[in-house]
Amino acid sequence: MAINFTGISNQGGVSKNSRTPAEDSTSKTAVDANTSGAGTMAEDTVRLSGTAQTLQNQEAKINGLSDIDQQKVDQIKQAIASGNYKIDSQKLASNMASMDSLF
């Protein structure tokens, strides 16, 4: 039986029928009714909801983003090199203490 998935951009082929033998025997007449006399199989289709398609598109966009904000890294490097990068020791200590309390 051929299965078409619409709305999915990168899909693999479906090679295994997930029906159990009991389901096959009860649905055989339905498959036979949907099959033409030339021996072609009926196709099952799956359609994704608009929400699922939106989530899939957003996931693709997120996967394309870099994990590093290179512009910010370059600004910090430049500030360190020029001697203008100041460290707020109170804020650093507070952040370290709050991280320590997590463990």
Rank of each mutant, 00 (worst) to 15 (best):
K61H: 15
V31R: 13
D100N: 12
D24L: 06
D24P: 01
D69K: 09
D32K: 10
D100V: 03
K61M: 11
S36D: 05
A97M: 00
I62N: 10
A38D: 12
A38Y: 14
G7A: 01
K72G: 06
S89P: 02
T54L: 05
A38F: 10
Q78G: 07
A30E: 05
K77M: 04
T40K: 13
K86F: 00
Q90M: 09
A2H: 13
L55G: 13
F5W: 08
I3K: 07
A42I: 02
A79H: 01
R19D: 12
L55C: 11
G64P: 03
Q75R: 10
D67H: 14
Q56D: 07
S89T: 10
A42T: 05
L65S: 13
S89K: 14
N17T: 02
L102Q: 04
T35S: 12
L55M: 12
A38P: 02
I80P: 05
A93R: 14
T29H: 06
A22I: 07
Q56F: 04
I68L: 11
A81G: 03
D67N: 13
T54P: 00
T6S: 15
S98N: 07
N84V: 04
I3F: 06
N4V: 00
I68P: 06
S94T: 12
S98R: 09
I87G: 07
N84P: 02
L102F: 03
Q58G: 10
K77L: 04
N57S: 08
N4A: 03
A22E: 14
A33W: 06
S18C: 11
D100R: 15
A79K: 03
T54Y: 09
